[in-house]
């Protein structure tokens, strides 16, 4: 009798394994629903790292900027990669407008043409203090960009404090603002 119990326990291992996997899947599914689990997420290792060397020409009328200038800043700066051809960027503009009263935002137009950028900003408003151009996408690669829009919070001294590889939402800006205090 004891032997059969022992064997039953032994033969429950397949069930237990399947149950653990099932529990994991359930957690993933609920994470997918709530938005805190995204299998497409890419976590690039930039937090608390210095900004990469770069130099950008300006999007007229704004002058360009570079690594040294960003390092010299005495207050936090939000770097926002965007493009006129990117639809999620369009949805992000409203959030950026509101955010621009709390923090200086410097934009980088990724793989874009100056005319298209100015047209985009005329239509949707301009939340940026400065705009640089990255027509070939080389600077984006230096920053570890995987798509547009993406935002980086840069602290004085040129350290990356926060990175968000998706369009900014109201919820994500709250995380950002809490980091500023």
């Amino acid at each position: 009798m004891q032997d059969i119990t022992r064997r039953r326990l032994l033969w429950s291992i397949p069930f237990a394994t399947a149950a653990v996997a099932g529990g994991g899947f359930l957690a993933m599914l609920s994470g997918l629903r709530k938005g805190n689990f995204d299998p497409r997420e890419i976590n690039i290792p930039v937090i608390n790292k210095p900004i990469p060397p770069f130099s950008l020409i300006g999007q007229p009328p704004s002058a360009g900027f570079n690594q040294q200038e960003l390092q010299r800043q005495t207050k936090p700066i939000l770097i926002n990669f965007f493009a006129s051809w990117c639809i999620p960027c369009l949805t992000e503009m409203g959030v950026l407008q509101q955010l621009s009263s709390h923090i200086d935002i410097w934009g980088i137009a990724y793989k874009d043409k100056p005319d298209a950028v100015s047209g985009f900003l005329e239509r949707n408003g301009n939340p940026y203090q400065k705009i640089g151009q990255d027509p070939e996408g080389n600077i984006g690669i230096e920053w570890g960009l995987s798509g547009v829009p993406e935002s980086f919070l840069i602290m004085p001294g040129g350290i990356i404090k926060w990175h968000y590889p998706k369009p900014l939402s109201v919820a994500s800006t709250q995380i950002l603002l809490s980091l500023l205090q």
Binding site: R7, F15, G22
Partner: peptide, 21 residues
């Protein structure tokens, strides 16, 4: 997942109970 739990989970439970015999 529920379907999987019913079909495979049920079969594996039955397996654990009956296989020792």
């Amino acid at each position: 997942l529920l379907l999987l739990a019913a079909i495979s989970g049920g079969a594996l439970l039955l397996f654990a109970w009956r296989a020792p015999n």
